[in-house]
Write a protein that binds this DNA or RNA. Structure first.
Lengths: 251, 251
DNA sequence: TTCTATCATTGAACAGTGTTCGCCAGCAAG
DNA sequence: CTTGCTGGCGAACACTGTTCAATGATAGAA
């Protein structure tokens, strides 16, 4: 497109321009890890996780597949770099015992927001354990907030598990429904939701009374509302472990 | 091996044994969905999720790959059947408001137990949304317990999300650590845990004071203890939504 | 018993995948 | 201008899931 091959209507470059052109051709931006990750994101958004192949990434860059392996150990490393770049610049504020709950919620909200930035990103996120040096600062900050808030150490340690598995799992479920919507003929989310609700409403009342009764609550609520509510459930549970008198949420 | 081709030392079967032999050969158990799923489990346990291929399953059955497709739509269906069979017979007791929390915990414990029965099973579990008819009864039973306990409907709807994403996520993390252990030279879990703890202890104290301080709590605790604690966090959060006076956890 | 029709099973093929290796063109240094 | 070198290239390997024409053995009919 922007780099047409000679021979299909394009006149060959005049000889006196050979010198500058010679610079132009090799002056194509050199392949770097950053450019590879960037291209991988483009492919991921367009083709989804299953369509994210090294060949597609190479094609996106207009480069041979084998060229990628000079800068990257393999596909695993590409996925890891994508995962790490997604949370770059994601920093938590210094612990404030007065509203630690809101701080934790903000962390989860921001995490979800970033995961939703790219299609199928939750799939990639879940296959990585966040103990690479760049991601450890998040764990550290979260633990700081928990401890300053007065949570016992064991609870603080477990809280990270609950929060991160929930965050990944929730977004993953969201993207699975979105994928299902893509596969079906439903164009809009509303249409898809109506289809699902119809399926649940059509279930035999006597065998699934509660599902039928809650079909509205299960899917009519927006994902944001369900996410917020679930966050609140988790944080209420955590708060219940703060010893009375220890940094009470007075304010 | 057990079925040597004629011509390399094996004498051909005498003609008078042809009749019984003819029965023996076709008397091989016929291919069924059940046998395919069973073989898939064997391959999964031996090779892990990445080694679970249709060809391996076919080889396990001593059958051509293409033969599988006469009984199964494809690999996706095999994974779905495996997932559904894992939870076969997993039934919840009738709702008892007096100890609904223990009922919910038992559900999660049994779910984790089954997921741990087969290597990488959590990976398979997470890619499925439990809305197939066979699995809907679980959702139904859980909702029943939540509602009878007095949880508001919106909370009951969200509670299922929190619980299932946590269950899958926690076991998935467990199996990821186990996979990492397998890859490393560490044989036992204790050895692996020591390695991890050593890594955390070696972190710079000034940058990661909380991680260093909690390195013991993060990994010395057994997975069971962490799972139980996390369950308790979630259930305390849920319980906080029961309106006062509505089926109080007296006893 | 002999023939036939049926259907489960097969082998080969196709279009992909991640990864490796030998080669070659173009650049910087001498 | 020549030399050395290295980044990118093409081709290949060993896989993957899936399809399809052909085949083999079986059960039923004559």
């Amino acid at each position: 497109m922007s780099d047409p091959a000679p021979g299909d209507g394009a006149v060959p470059p005049p000889p006196w321009e050979r010198s500058p052109r010679r610079r132009a051709s090799p002056a194509r931006v050199p392949l770097t890890r950053e450019r590879i990750v960037e291209a991988a994101y483009v492919v991921l958004d367009r083709e989804g996780y299953d369509g994210l192949s090294m060949r597609q990434v190479a094609a996106e860059l207009g480069v041979a597949v084998s060229g990628l392996y000079a800068h990257v150990a393999g596909k695993d490393e590409v996925l890891r770099l994508m995962y790490e770049r997604l949370f770059e610049g994601h920093e938590l504020p210094p612990p404030d015992p007065a509203n630690w709950q809101e701080q934790v919620k903000d962390f989860a909200r921001e995490g979800r927001r970033r995961l939703l930035l790219h299609r199928d990103m939750a799939k990639i996120s879940m296959t990585h354990v966040p103990f690479t040096p760049e991601l450890l600062v998040h764990v550290e900050s979260l633990l700081a907030i928990f401890r300053v808030a007065g949570l016992p150490d064991t609870v603080a340690a477990a809280a990270g598990d609950v929060l991160s598995t929930f965050m990944d799992g929730f977004v993953h479920e969201e993207s699975m429904w979105d994928e299902r919507r893509r596969d079906s003929k439903a164009e809009t989310w509303e249409e898809m939701r109506a289809t699902i609700k119809g399926y649940f409403d059509a279930l035999p009342h006597e065998r699934f009374p509660n599902i039928v009764a809650l079909s509205g609550k299960l899917f009519d609520e927006s994902n944001d509302a369900r996410f917020e509510l679930a966050l609140d459930i988790i944080l209420r549970g955590l708060a219940s472990y703060i010893p009375p008198g220890d940094a009470p949420p007075s304010r």
